[in-house]
C-alpha cells in the first residue's frame, strides 16, 4: 500500500463504497421514501414526502402502509410461504448439490472443466425461457405426462403444474448452480491429506465425512445456502409461472400491489420489510464466515 499514497488509497476504498451508495443505498432510500407516502391517482402515484406550502416546507410521512402489512394476515402468510418454500428449496439444493460438487472436486483435470462448464451452461439461456420450458414439460398435455402415458404407467395426466410441487421444482432447478459453485470451491480447497489422515486414524468414510469434510466445508455450505435462500425468498417469476392459486409468495404479492393495484406505497413497504427480514440471515452468515476466516 505504500506505493499507492493517500489519494490512491481513498480511491481504492472509495470506489466500491460509491458503487454501493449509488446503486444500492440510493434506490433503497427512494423505496423507503415511497413506503412512507400515501397512494394517490396521478404520476407518480404517491404523495410527495416534502410538500411546498405557504408556511414553508411540510413533511408528509405515514406508517399506515406498514400498519396495513401488519394487520392483513395475507402479507404474513405470504412472507411465511416464501420463507418455507425458499428454505425447502435451499435444503433440497444442498442435498442434491453436495454430492455433485463433491464429484466435480474429485474429478481430474479436463473432466472437471467439462463438468463445471455444464453447471454454468444453463446461464447461457434466459432464465425466463427455461421456466417456460418447464411449463411445457409439466403441463397436463406436456412432455412428461405424454411420456408416462405412452409408457402405460398412468392413464390420466398427473397434475404436475401450477401447484406447490412445480414451484419447488422450479426453485431447486433454477438455484442449484448457486449452491454447487461455492460448495465446489470449498471442497476443491480441502486438503486430500486430511481425508486420508482421518481414514488412517480409523475413521470410516461416513465418520470422515461427518468429522472432517462437513465441518471444513461449512463456509461453502453457508455461502451456497445464502445464495439460494435470499433470491428464492424474493422470487417472483417462478411462483407466477409455475405456481397455482394456493401458491402464496411475497414476490408475487409485491408484483400484484405494484402493477395490478398500482399501490406503490404498500408495494414499497412490502419491499422494505422483505429487505429487513433478509438482512437477518445475511448478517448471521456474514459473521459466521468471518469467524471461519479468522480461524
Amino acid at each position: 500500500m505504500t506505493g499507492l499514497g493517500r489519494i490512491g488509497r481513498l480511491i481504492f476504498i472509495g470506489v466500491p463504497f460509491l458503487w454501493l451508495a449509488v446503486f444500492f443505498l440510493l434506490p433503497f432510500l427512494i423505496v423507503v421514501k415511497i413506503s412512507l407516502a400515501e397512494s394517490t391517482i396521478g404520476i407518480p402515484p404517491y404523495t410527495p414526502l416534502v410538500a411546498h406550502q405557504v408556511s414553508g416546507l411540510e413533511l408528509h410521512a405515514t406508517l399506515a402502509n406498514f400498519g396495513l402489512i401488519a394487520k392483513d394476515d395475507l402479507y404474513l402468510r405470504a412472507y411465511l410461504g416464501s420463507l418455507g418454500n425458499a428454505a425447502l428449496a435451499t435444503a433440497l439444493c444442498l442435498l442434491i448439490g453436495y454430492p455433485i460438487a463433491y464429484a466435480i472436486a474429485r474429478s481430474q483435470g479436463s473432466v472437471r472443466q467439462i463438468l463445471l462448464f455444464l453447471i454454468i451452461l444453463p446461464f447461457w439461456t434466459s432464465f425466463l425461457i427455461r421456466v417456460y420450458a418447464w411449463m411445457a414439460i409439466l403441463e397436463p398435455q406436456g412432455l412428461l405426462n405424454q411420456f408416462l402415458i405412452a409408457l402405460g404407467l398412468i392413464s390420466t395426466p398427473l397434475p404436475l403444474l401450477n401447484n406447490q410441487f412445480s414451484v419447488e421444482l422450479g426453485l431447486v432447478y433454477s438455484y442449484l448452480p448457486f449452491m454447487i459453485l461455492p460448495l465446489y470451491g470449498s471442497l476443491s480447497r480441502l486438503d486430500p491429506n486430511l481425508v486420508e489422515a482421518a481414514g488412517d486414524l480409523g475413521a470410516r468414510p461416513s465418520q470422515t465425512f461427518l468429522g472432517v469434510v462437513l465441518p471444513l466445508t461449512m463456509p461453502g455450505i453457508a455461502a451456497g445456502s445464502l445464495l439460494v435462500l435470499i433470491p428464492a425468498i424474493g422470487e417472483f417469476v417462478i411462483p407466477e409461472l409455475l405456481g397455482g392459486p394456493d401458491t402464496l409468495m411475497i414476490g408475487k404479492v409485491l408484483w400484484d400491489e405494484f402493477f395490478n393495484n398500482r399501490d406503490w406505497p404498500v408495494a414499497a413497504a412490502v419491499a422494505v420489510v422483505l429487505v429487513a427480514l433478509l438482512a437477518v440471515p445475511l448478517l448471521a452468515a456474514q459473521r459466521f464466515l468471518e469467524r471461519e476466516r479468522a480461524a
Partner: peptide, 11 residues
C-alpha cells in the same frame, strides 16, 4: 501414519 504435511485437522 505421520504425514509429511502433518495433515492436522484445522477445525
Amino acid at each position: 501414519m505421520m504425514f509429511q504435511s502433518y495433515a492436522l485437522f484445522p477445525h
